[in-house]
Every structure is written in structure tokens, then in C-alpha cells.
Design a protein around this nucleic acid. Sequence first.
DNA 1: CTCCAACCTGGAGCGCACTCCAGGTCAAGC
DNA 2: GCTTGACCTGGAGTGCGCTCCAGGTTGGAG
Lengths: 125, 125
Amino acid sequence: MNGYAPSEAARRSGFSLDTLRYYEKIGLLADVDRTAGGQRVFTDDDLGWLVLFRCLRDTGMPIAQMRRYAQLAREGEHTADERRDLLRHHAARVEEQMRLLQRQYDHLREKIRFYERQLGPAPQE
Amino acid sequence: MNGYAPSEAARRSGFSLDTLRYYEKIGLLADVDRTAGGQRVFTDDDLGWLVLFRCLRDTGMPIAQMRRYAQLAREGEHTADERRDLLRHHAARVEEQMRLLQRQYDHLREKIRFYERQLGPAPQE
DNA sequence: CTCCAACCTGGAGCGCACTCCAGGTCAAGC
DNA sequence: GCTTGACCTGGAGTGCGCTCCAGGTTGGAG
């Protein structure tokens, strides 16, 4: 079970065709296999990478950093420590992001309560 | 305790001077008071709005929507329902965002665990 | 063999949210 | 009164992450 057409890879990864091509163009996704005629054939491995990119992207990692991670992985096993540290560092930022989001969400709910109690449009009007 | 110089408003709100001017220019922040010479004087009320904008921005609300909210507030009390609904709707999107972030964070931690157990670079290579 | 939907390329364009700039004005301290 | 740093304006520029386009090629179905 290996070898997906571009549209299938897009469907499975949730990225658009243009985004898949873009990711390959900028060297985020390693060079994708091609048919004799030059059309892309995505492997399960490619799909695995896309799942990771989605995770990193959704948690706010800039593309430049994802590319760095991908390039380290291509360099081989000796970069494992650096990759782990990169992910740990990112995870710490995500934690901070989650705390901020929770804080601002609480603030938002507080504001909604003012409306629900019909106390008018709340302090800062 | 009212009337802040631009730099003071920037410091208190955490927005840059340029951003404060930008927010006023696009009609997000209502017209700010001026000295006779034309320099801005921010009120506590302006600061209150800025706190709200920071909350909404940090939770991912697009500027266009913040502007809509601000304009409704300026129209008066009869828009309170619409404002409340706008905030509720936004809160629901924030909840979704928090769930996604948590899910991807868990995924990320899982990946980090692979590195920590020295099992190599994990499934998706 | 023909058709046509899916695919290819390089490069331009877009939407967002600022950010910076030039060239000038204001106002507080000496 | 002079200096100087903070401030003003309109408008151009930036960075990110795509997204779209024109013009051409491929390849599976019928």
C-alpha cells in the first residue's frame, strides 16, 4: 500500500495540491518520486512527514524551523539529539501558547457573562 | 488618572506605537483625543479597548471582526445582543482551537518520547 | 486512438497585520 | 529662545504562507 497520486495525498494530508508542491519546492518535503512522465507519486513516508508538518504547523512552528528539522533528519542519526531539543523547545513554546490562550479565553468568557447578565456592554465599552 | 502619552499607551498595552496609529487609522480604535498641537492623548477608556483587542487578537480574531465589534459598540446599546453573539461565536472557535492545540501538543510530546527512549527518530523518520 | 481530467512548471499575486520611512511639527527642559 | 526627543502624516515596504495563473503535458477510460 504505497504510492499516492497528488490528489490523494492532498486528501489524506489535508494540504492543498499547491501547498504540497510549495513544500517540495522550498525543500520542506524531500524530493517526491515521479512517474516516467514527471507526475508526483507520494509514499507512505511522505504522508508521515505531512502528518508531522501538520502537527508542527498547527502548533505555530514557522516553516523555516520545520525545514531545519527535516534537513537534520535527512542528515542522519547523529542529529537525533538536536532534533529532540528542537522539538522540546517547540513544545515549551506551545505550552506557553496554551497558557496564554486559556488566559485570554477566560477573559473572553468573563466579558460574555457581562452581556448575559444584561449589565450592559461591560466596563471598557 | 487619565490621559496617556503615546509611548505610555504603547507600554501599557503592549502594542507598538505604529500599531496604535494603525488601529486608529483603520477605525478599530475610535478617534483618539489630541493636544492642541495634534499629538495623541490616550484615555483609560482607550486602554480598556486595547486590552480587549489584545484578548481578541491573541485568540485569533481577525481585525475585520474586531472592527465590526467596535463599530457595533459605538452604535449603542441596541447592538448588545449582536455583540454578545459575536463574542460567543468567537469563544466557540477558540474552544475548537484549544482542542486542536491540545491534540497536536499530545502528538508532539509523543514524538519527543520516541527520542527520549532512544528508539531512533520515530516512525515517520 | 482520442479525449479530458489531472497533472506539470515558473513565476506572479494575494491577504494579513503590521512596520518602516521621509520629511516635517511639537513641547518640555535648560 | 533653543535644543532635542517624542511625535505627526501619508504612503511604501515587509514577511509569511500560501494561492493562482498561463500555457503546456500526461495517462487512464472508452
